[in-house]
Design a protein around this nucleic acid. Structure first.
Lengths: 232, 232
DNA sequence: CGACTCCGGATTGTCAACAATCCTGTTGAC
DNA sequence: GTCAACAGGATTGTTGACAATCCGGAGTCG
C-alpha cells in the first residue's frame, strides 16, 4: 500500500505558485526586497527582535525567514552573533559569475531545440512586462520580470537540477542585478538582449544563444569592476 | 568605522572544522548518517516528537536539524505535513549526475596546475584512511573519507562557489554513494580510481583527470540503472 | 601606560505549552 | 454499495518566557 514512488523534485526556493499566506514567507519576501533594493546595506546587522516588532510577528517567524535568506545567500549567519547582510567583494563576484556562465552554457547545450512555441510566447510576454514596468519606473517589478525571464529560459533546459543550480546562483548575485536595473542604459540594453535571445531560440541558433547569454552578463560585471576601482 | 569588507564565504554546509558542540548539529549528523546508511528508508516519515524523545532534546532542535537536512536535499518538507526521507527516482539521479559531471569538469578545467605538493599529500593521506577503514569494515568512516577526498580535490579548483556547488550536489547524491560503498568490488575500484586521480594531478594531465573523474561516477550510476530494471 | 580580568547589557539559542492544520476512520444519506 | 460530510486523534506551526553566549567597557595589576 502507498508504494507510489512520488517524485521528489529539487525545491529551488520557497516560491510556490500558490497563495503564499505563511507569515514567514511574507517576512522573507519583505526582507529580500529590502536587501535587493538597497534599503538594507551590506554588512548591516539584522536584529531578530527589531524585525519581530516591525512585522508584528513572533521572533520564531523572523528566525525562519532569516534562515531562508541565509540559505539563498543574501545574509550570513554567525552562530551566536546574529545575522548580517551579505557583502561580496569584487573578486567573489567574478567567481560567482564564472560559475553562472558555466551553468548557463551547460543549460543551453542541453536545451531541446527547436524550442516549443509556448516557450517563445511566454518569454516574449515576460519581456513585454519588463519593458512596461521599466517605462513606468516600477523597478521592483522590473527586477521580478528580469528574474522570471531567466528562470523561464534556463528552466527549459530539461534538467530540473541544473535549472535549480542556475536559479540559486542567480539569487546569490541578485544584489548586482538590482544595481544594474537601476541604471536606465543597462536596463534598456538588457531588454534588447532578451529579445535577441528569443530570436536565437526561435531559429535554433544554440551557439549564438550561448554567446549572447555570456555577453549579457558582462555589463553588470563591468559595473562592479568600475565601482571596485573607484572605491578600493 | 568598521568598514572592513570582511569576505562572506559561500557557506556550503554547517560543517565548521571546530568543536561542533551545538545540539542541532549533533542531531543533524545523526540523522544524516541514518539516512545515508539506510537505517532510514526513502519515503519514510520523520516525526518531530519521536526524534525529540530519541535524542533527549527539544522539538525546536529537531526542527532546525530537519531544516538543515531539507536544505541539502536529504529530506523533503511538506508544509503542515511533516518531512519524509528523499526518494529520487532513477531518471532524477541521471539528471543529478549530469549536473555533477558538468560541475566537476568545470572545476578540473580551472584547477591550477601543477598541483602543490601539499594537495597531493593530503589526498594521498585521505585515500590511505579510506583503504584502512574499508579493510576494517568501518563503512561509516569509509563514506566520510570518500567525501573528504572529493571535497579536497574539487576544493582546489580555486573558485569557492564552484567548489560549494560541487559539494552541494555531492550531498544530494550521497544516498547513491552510500550504496556503492557497501559493495566491496565498487569500493575497491573507487580506491584505485582515487590513486589514479592523484597520479594525473601529479603529472598535470588535466584531460586525463577529467576523463577519470567522469568514469569514476559511472559504476554507482550503473548500479542504479540495474536496480531500476530489477524493480520497475 | 599597557594588558588582563571581570562584570553588565544586549542578543541569540532553547524550551514547554498553545493554536492551527491535516489525515483517518466512522457515520449517514442517496 | 458508493459517496460525502464529520468528528477524533495525531502532527506541525507559533508564541512567549527562560537560559546560554558574546561583546564592550570599567577596574586593576604589572
Amino acid at each position: 500500500m502507498s508504494a507510489q514512488p512520488t517524485a521528489v523534485m529539487p525545491s529551488t526556493s520557497a516560491a510556490a505558485p500558490r497563495g503564499e499566506a505563511r507569515p514567514q514567507d511574507r517576512v522573507f519576501q519583505a526582507l529580500r526586497r529590502d536587501v535587493l533594493l538597497g534599503r538594507l546595506r551590506p554588512r548591516e546587522r539584522l536584529v531578530e527582535e527589531e524585525l519581530a516588532a516591525r512585522f508584528a510577528v513572533g521572533r520564531y517567524v523572523v528566525r525562519a525567514a532569516l534562515d531562508e535568506l541565509a540559505r539563498i545567500g543574501l545574509v550570513e549567519r554567525r552562530p551566536n552573533r546574529g545575522v548580517v547582510v551579505a557583502d561580496y567583494d569584487p573578486s567573489q563576484i567574478e567567481q560567482l559569475y564564472e560559475v553562472r556562465e558555466t551553468l548557463q552554457r551547460a543549460a543551453i547545450a542541453r536545451m531541446p531545440l527547436p524550442a516549443p512555441q509556448a516557450l517563445l510566447d511566454e518569454l516574449t510576454a515576460i519581456n513585454r512586462t519588463y519593458a512596461e514596468c521599466l517605462a513606468r519606473g516600477e523597478l521592483d517589478e522590473v527586477a521580478e520580470a528580469n528574474a522570471a525571464f531567466h528562470r523561464t529560459l534556463f528552466g527549459a533546459c530539461g534538467n530540473p537540477f541544473l535549472a535549480a543550480a542556475i536559479e540559486q546562483h542567480w539569487e546569490k548575485s541578485a544584489l548586482v542585478h538590482g544595481y544594474a536595473i537601476g541604471v536606465p542604459a543597462l536596463a534598456a540594453r538588457s531588454h534588447a538582449d532578451h529579445e535577441a535571445m528569443i530570436a536565437r531560440l526561435a531559429e535554433s541558433d544554440r551557439a549564438g544563444l550561448g554567446e549572447l547569454c555570456s555577453r549579457h552578463m558582462q555589463p553588470s560585471l563591468e559595473a562592479v569592476r568600475k565601482t571596485a576601482r573607484t572605491r578600493p
